[in-house]
């Protein structure tokens, strides 16, 4: 593992042309032997299992208020204590995890998809570059808060009518976060693609008449994977925090839906009074982001043609 910096012998970029079956077997093999990646996968799976199975183990309604047990310290009944209304923090973490993870992963995926698409197209096709990058500039410059108010004004009631209150808000939040956070990925991917498309192996592929689509998928994309993986990791953290920021504008889930970001924000002022209110949500977010980071690392290593096959 640690001698990863050593270049693997006998690898040429063309090796990515190995048959499909072998490629994915290789990737899986490589991934399985990546200690960080496996650890990340295990932790992430545990978090996902906990938020799915949690209500079975700890059957407490996270919105149930018990005014007699306000600001309680951790105990058997409340393993992570309670908040200032007497709501169970552990139940909140479990329930909040569902929303935070769902929003984090979906919004990140949307932003990543948009960013990569725009970045690759702009970097690869010069005719599209100017137009796409000006659109990126525009999105970077838009005043986010007033924009959100406009989006809410235009779409909330329509989505609520079409999908019901919860799914409607979920879609709206994922859309808002995705559409307002793809620009950095796009700029980074474009920068890399600009350099990559002048590299020898791309020129070689083009000179033998490889179609553009194949060049992009086979030669360009695998080589911009590392910044994309970083964007993915940072994107999840961003999405989870942004989701909570939205609910302070009245744009997110109603206040009785706990989410990790919201628990952390609400708990911040109670930091000295009941520290467990901030430690657990903070830990949950950090662990999720860390585990995704390690999974991303492993995936990138595994997909890297030069590191594979050792």
């Amino acid at each position: 593992m640690t001698e990863r910096a050593e270049p693997a012998p006998g690898t040429v970029p063309g090796e990515i042309e190995t048959p499909e079956r072998g490629l994915w077997n290789d990737v899986w093999y490589q991934f399985r032997h990546h200690r960080g990646a496996m650890l990340g996968t295990i932790v992430f799976t545990l978090i996902v299992l906990a938020v799915i199975l949690g209500p079975v183990l700890h059957p407490v309604d996270p919105t149930h208020i018990d005014v007699k047990a306000r600001n309680a310290l951790p105990s058997l009944a409340h393993p992570m204590g309670t908040d200032n209304l007497g709501r169970d923090t552990f139940a909140g973490i479990i329930e909040g995890g569902r929303i935070s993870l769902a929003v984090g992963v979906t919004a990140m995926a949307l932003a990543l998809f948009l960013g990569t698409l725009v970045g690759v197209l702009a970097g690869y096709y010069r005719r599209l570059d100017g137009m796409l990058m000006r659109v990126t500039d525009l999105f970077l410059a838009l005043p986010i808060l007033p924009l959100l108010l406009v989006v809410i004004l235009l779409f909330r009631d329509a989505l609520r009518a079409a999908f019901g209150p919860e799914t409607g808000i979920f879609l709206l939040i994922v859309f808002i976060i995705g559409v307002t956070s793809w620009m950095q990925t796009a700029r980074i991917v474009r920068g890399d693609v600009l350099a990559l498309k002048e590299r020898e192996f791309v020129l070689a592929a083009r000179s033998v008449g490889t179609p553009d689509r194949r060049i992009i998928l086979r030669h360009i994309l695998p080589n911009v994977l590392s910044p994309i993986m970083v964007s993915a990791t940072l994107g999840i953290a961003n999405a989870i925090i942004t989701e909570s920021a939205l609910s302070f504008l009245g744009l997110g889930f109603p206040s009785d839906f706990p989410t990790w970001g919201r628990l952390l924000f609400d708990g911040a002022n109670f930091m000295a009074l009941s520290p467990s209110r901030v430690i657990w949500p903070g830990l949950a977010i950090s662990l999720t982001v860390l585990s995704v980071n390690f999974i991303g690392d492993g995936l990138r290593d595994a997909l890297d043609p030069r590191a594979r096959g050792r």
Binding site: T233, F265, G282, I285, S286, T288, V289
Partner: peptide, 22 residues
Amino acid sequence: GTFVSMVGYSVPTFFTGLLMIM
């Protein structure tokens, strides 16, 4: 480095700021 930077990025500034003030 990975640990510190990932935690540093995932914990929002309203929290770190308040922690430092406290």
